[in-house]
Design a binder for these strands. Structure first.
Lengths: 250, 250
DNA sequence: ATGCTTTCTTGACCTGCATCAAGGCGGCGC
DNA sequence: GCGCCGCCTTGATGCAGGTCAAGAAAGCAT
């Protein structure tokens, strides 16, 4: 079955940073092997079952987290407002570097949407690294800029796209990031994606409610844009789905 | 009258950077006078009437803009969606540094909400400065982080607060930033603010429509939380207004 | 003044989505 | 197996706010 096998609990984890997907992603790629080896020797690795918090808003920052496998989300909960999933983070991405860099309390929290394996690098170790090699720091900083750009786009989208459009956009986005990893087909043909999260999480991501989300998915399915099989979606035509990403024109 | 006097057109502008409000704000405070003098000699200053664009999304970046007086807004227009004002910028703030730093095309546009006087610093000059003094660069980078934080908060707010609450939050925010500049009263007593923008702009800022905004202001006035005089608001009790900032509890 | 333009307000209408409330379907422990 | 407990779906209802349209008010030019 397509469902990801749940990680078995309790068994010890040994991960080699030099062989990790994170190794060549974004910020660590510029670090020499020698440094990575030091991180490798001092990191700690944990499994996070679905739904568990990796860190929480308002807490002091103990370090950064590299996702070896699974999907997590950065979550923002303004006091007494429902939470919003501000952005997703996939295997290979580094999480929580912002408070680590400027040594502030966590401004958001992160939670595992699927069972994850995540390594933790102590903030002191991180800073020792960065003092010797400034390149990753710049990578982190441009990462913030990209996040800002993305968040601004999301803001516009939440403000003006109906839920149906946002759902479509999310799915198209997931397909696109899967491209080059495992998708066999061409640009706009049929394809498949996994939704690596529950309906509730997906609703938080799209700033809506689970009920509304279900209905939106249902509507897309009724219109033949989607074929639903739980957490695995079949998409007859990506381009037709992409058309939903844009507000009503006629 | 309290209304800002409109800048008279056409007359030449001479501004001394060393005496500018921008001088001691955020990023330039760390630059020695000698450097500021060089900027002063090479900057160009312009008036921007209300509504005029300072720069536009997709354009190449020619430099940064320091607001000497007036209010501007960073504006984001996703293709075929209504625009969103992503953040405000007041006198003393520096605008458009992001694309200037990483030399990309402008990701958003900026427009003058009121008549503004704004200085332009060429990107080449800026980089020459930054090569000699790294401190402002760090200031710029933490500024991005702050913006990200703010934008995330806005996202949550737009998603979950009703228009009425968002209006209240905007007004409270404007009052708070005016504090220490010209407000005589205490913490939560009555006070006044100017709304330095049109209803249309304000609506774009709050992700709604002018009609709805008018009605929300009207409702606040009916409830005695506001007394409206065009673009000057009187606030009987700031704390009562602040209570509107939080979603309905009972 | 007088007109012209842009901004603001008001009204009527209607739709998208939140909310409340059941009921189906797995997954998991016993 | 059986029962329990989350998740997901479906239905019914109400309201916030978007949209269209028409005036009123405020600027600005002549």
């Amino acid at each position: 079955m397509a469902k990801l096998s749940p990680v078995s609990r309790g068994q010890p984890i040994a991960l080699d940073c030099l062989a990790c997907p994170t190794r060549w992603s974004a910020e660590w790629a510029v670090l020499p092997d020698e440094q990575m080896a030091e991180i490798n020797a001092n990191k700690t690795t944990r499994r996070y079952p679905r739904g568990v918090f990796i860190y929480s808003q308002g807490q002091p920052c103990t370090g950064v987290y590299c996702i070896a496998s699974g999907t997590a989300a950065v979550r923002r909960a303004e006091p007494s407002l429902p939470a919003v999933l501000v952005r997703l983070a996939f295997a290979g991405e580094t999480l929580g570097y912002r408070s680590a860099l400027d040594e502030t309390l966590r401004a958001s929290d992160a939670k595992a949407l699927e069972p994850c394996v995540i390594c933790h690098v102590e903030v002191t170790l991180l800073h020792r690294m960065l003092r010797r090699h400034r390149a990753p720091l710049q990578r982190f900083q441009t990462h913030i800029a990209v996040d800002l750009d993305q968040t601004e786009a999301d803001l516009a989208q939440v403000a003006w796209l109906p839920v149906r459009g946002r759902v479509a956009r999310l799915i198209v986005g997931l397909v696109e990031r899967a491209r080059g990893v495992d998708t066999p087909t061409g640009q706009n043909g049929p394809c498949e994606v996994a939704l690596p999260m529950t309906r509730r999480d997906m609703a938080e991501l799209l700033c809506t409610r689970p009920e509304t989300l279900t209905r939106a998915l249902q509507a897309l399915e009724d219109d033949g844009l989607l074929r639903n099989a739980g957490h695995r979606l079949a998409i007859p035509s990506l381009s037709r789905l992409r058309a939903e990403t844009v507000p009503h024109v006629e």
